[in-house]
């Protein structure tokens, strides 16, 4: 774990693996269930995996409340790491952060792989682009995220349960209202010049794949791959297929 101080924010960054650099931005839920995915990434890339402020157990500064703040923080991090033109992989909430980075400083990102990113709402005011997880019964909310058997919270350690509660808290902190999107992000997507590879679980009922189609059509070089047999986290439910999709995507072609 490497520690950074950037703009008054303390940041823990896990660095693992070997190969070309890849900035990996984690999603909102179930950190420990993503460990196998990150380990597989490390077989092909040198993975830089920061823990988002708040999700890391520290209270963010009072003026650090927007996903755009996280985006600026990670652009600073890329500078500190000496990565002028980086490959960035973001999943769900992490995908939202990656898009906010890309519209701010397009030239700094060489390639983007996004797994079912949040952050852009394309539907109308009556449409739920993102399922209201906190208003759904537990089994229905889990069914939005997983097509197969969802994680059994009864098997989680106390620390893992606290992490679940904290992850939900900070997803709310950054994304409660407007719900999980930045209303002006859609209009700036044309600024993203890097190739963008969208990967979506075919049975995602948290953020439906239709939103991925809309996103792909709004990006200069956008492409969408669906992963069969997966919900919102194909990297958990279909690890091999997700790794294979990433290996065939633009992040694989970015040299160190």
């Amino acid at each position: 774990m490497e520690k950074f101080e950037l703009a008054g924010v303390s940041l823990d960054v896990e660095v693992l693996g070997a190969g070309p650099p890849l900035l990996y931005l984690h999603p909102e839920h179930y950190g420990q269930l993503h460990a196998p995915f990150v380990a597989r990434l490390a077989e092909s890339w040198t993975v830089y995996a920061p823990r988002h402020p708040g999700f890391d157990g520290r209270r963010p500064p009072a003026d650090f409340r927007q996903v755009g703040d996280i985006a600026y923080l990670y652009l600073d991090l890329l500078g500190r790491l000496g990565l002028d033109s980086a490959a960035v992989l973001g999943a769900s909430f992490g995908g939202w952060v990656a898009l906010e980075m890309a519209v701010r400083e397009p030239a700094r990102l060489a390639a983007l792989s996004l797994i079912a990113p949040l952050g852009v709402k394309l539907g109308g005011r009556d449409d739920r682009d993102f399922a209201d997880l906190s208003a759904l019964p537990d089994d229905e909310a889990a069914g939005c995220l997983f097509v197969g058997t969802p994680p059994d919270l009864g098997t989680f350690t106390e620390a893992e349960l606290i992490a679940v509660a904290r992850d939900r808290q900070f997803l709310a902190y950054y994304g409660w209202k407007p719900y999980l999107h930045n209303p002006s992000l859609a209009r700036w997507l044309h600024r993203v010049t890097a190739p963008v590879h969208l990967i979506w679980g075919e049975a995602d009922r948290f953020v439906a794949p239709g939103l991925g189609e809309g996103l792909a059509s709004r990006l200069l070089a956008g492409r969408l791959d669906l992963v069969p047999g997966a919900g919102h986290y194909p990297q958990i439910e279909r690890l091999d297929a997700t790794i294979a999709a990433l290996a065939a995507g633009p992040c694989a072609g970015v040299g160190g």
Partner: peptide, 17 residues
């Protein structure tokens, strides 16, 4: 238990029980 409404240590105990 809305996210962050109660201390996470308390919410954690109620997530599945």
């Amino acid at each position: 238990f809305p996210p962050g409404y109660t201390a996470n240590e308390v919410t954690a105990q109620k997530l599945y029980n």
